[in-house]
Deep mutational scan, measured.
Amino acid sequence: SEFQINEQVLASWSDSRFYPAKVTAVNKDGTYTVKFYDGVVQTVKHIHVKA
């Protein structure tokens, strides 16, 4: 599913667990740039983002 900029989502971290994050960019290659609550910004594949 498509997510929008500033949408609150759950994004997987390197430990494969999902954490609350905010979408900061929707990228043309189908990835999302997300910002976790601790301030870390990461680009993740769409399969690693869920509502």
Rank of each mutant, 00 (worst) to 15 (best):
K50D: 08
A51K: 15
H48G: 05
E2A: 14
T24V: 15
V41Q: 07
G39S: 06
T24W: 04
V23S: 01
I47V: 10
A21F: 05
H46A: 15
A11P: 02
V9G: 01
K35N: 04
R17Y: 11
S14P: 09
A11I: 10
Y37N: 09
E2K: 14
V40G: 08
V9N: 05
L10T: 04
K35W: 08
F3Y: 09
K35I: 14
A11K: 01
G30Q: 01
V34Q: 01
N6V: 03
D15N: 09
F3D: 00
Y19F: 11
V40C: 14
F3A: 04
V23P: 00
S16K: 11
R17T: 13
E7M: 10
G30D: 05
V41T: 12
Y19E: 06
V34E: 00
N6Y: 08
T43N: 11
Y19N: 03
S12I: 15
I47Y: 09
V34R: 00
Q42S: 11
V44I: 10
T24N: 05
Q42R: 15
I47G: 13
S14I: 12
L10I: 07
Q42P: 03
F18M: 08
K28L: 09
S14W: 10
A21V: 03
D38N: 14
L10G: 01
T33K: 06
E2C: 15
K22H: 11
E7F: 07
A21L: 02
N6P: 02
T33C: 04
V40F: 12
K45R: 10
T43A: 05
Q8Y: 13
V40K: 13
Y37S: 12
K28P: 11
P20L: 10
D38K: 06
Q4M: 10
A11L: 05
V44Q: 00
V9C: 04
I5M: 09
S1N: 10
A25C: 07
A25S: 10
T33P: 00
Q4I: 07
K28F: 10
K22Q: 13
S14R: 13
S16F: 08
W13D: 08
P20N: 06
G30P: 01
K35T: 10
Q4C: 11
A25P: 00
V26F: 07
A11N: 02
I5R: 04
F18S: 02
I5D: 04
G39V: 04
D15L: 01
E7Y: 03
A11C: 09
A51D: 09
S12H: 10
K35C: 12
F36S: 02
S14H: 14
V49N: 05
F36Y: 05
W13I: 12
K45V: 08
K35Q: 15
V9E: 03
R17V: 13
V41H: 07
K28S: 14
D15H: 08
G39I: 03
F36W: 06
K28N: 10
V34T: 00
S14L: 12
V26L: 06
T31L: 02
H48K: 10
E2R: 14
D29L: 03
Y19L: 12
F18Q: 02
Q8H: 14
A21G: 07
Y32P: 00
D29P: 01
T33R: 05
A21D: 01
P20F: 06
W13L: 12
N27M: 05
G39N: 07
Y32H: 01
V44R: 02
Y32V: 09
R17G: 12
L10M: 11
S16Q: 10
Q8R: 07
V23F: 01
G39Q: 03
Y32K: 00
V41R: 04
V44E: 01
V26K: 08
K22T: 15
Y37G: 08
D15V: 02
A11D: 00
A51N: 09
A11R: 00
D38T: 14
N27H: 11
A51Y: 09
I47F: 13
T43V: 13
G30S: 01
Y32E: 00
T31G: 01
T33A: 01
G39H: 04
K45F: 10
Y32C: 04
E7N: 08
H46K: 15
V44M: 06
A25M: 08
D38F: 15
E2F: 13
S1I: 13
F36P: 02
K50H: 10
D38I: 06
T31N: 01
H48R: 09
H46S: 15
T33Q: 11
D15M: 02
Q42F: 11
N6R: 03
V34K: 00
V49G: 05
V23I: 15
K45M: 14
D29R: 00
D29N: 08
K28H: 11
A21K: 02
K35D: 04
S14K: 13
Q8C: 15
Y19A: 07
H48P: 02
A21R: 00
K35H: 09
V34C: 03
R17W: 09
S1Q: 12
G30Y: 05
W13T: 09
Y37V: 09
T31H: 01
G30C: 06
V9M: 02
T43Q: 08
V23T: 02
P20A: 07
S1K: 14
N27G: 08
A51I: 09
E7D: 15
F3L: 02
T31P: 03
I5F: 06
V40M: 13
N27S: 04
H48V: 07
K45W: 07
K28D: 13
A11F: 05
D15Q: 05
A25E: 07
K28A: 13
T33G: 01
Q42Y: 09
I47E: 14
T33Y: 04
H46E: 12
V34S: 00
A25Y: 05
V40N: 13
Q4P: 06
I5W: 05
V49T: 06
A25V: 09
S12M: 15
D38W: 15
P20K: 04
D15G: 15
K50E: 08
V23K: 00
V44N: 01
T31K: 01
V23N: 01
T31A: 03
Q4T: 10
V49I: 15
Y32L: 09
Y19S: 06
A21I: 03
E2Y: 12
V26Y: 06
A21S: 01
D29E: 05
V41K: 05
K35E: 15
E2P: 12
V41D: 03
T43I: 11
T24Y: 07
Q4E: 08
V41G: 03
V34G: 01
D38A: 02
A21T: 02
S12W: 12
S16R: 08
N6E: 08
K22Y: 12
F3I: 05
W13V: 12
G30I: 00
H46M: 11
S14G: 15
L10Q: 07
T31C: 04
Q42K: 15
E2S: 13
V23D: 03
D29V: 00
L10K: 00
H46N: 13
Y32D: 01
T43H: 08
A51V: 09
V41E: 13
T24D: 03
K22E: 10
S1M: 15
L10V: 06
Q4R: 11
W13A: 13
V40T: 15
S14E: 12
F18D: 02
K28E: 13
F36M: 05
N6K: 05
I47P: 09
Y19R: 05
Q8T: 14
G30M: 06
N6M: 07
V26H: 07
W13P: 07
G30K: 06
N6F: 08
S1H: 15
V9K: 02
V44S: 01
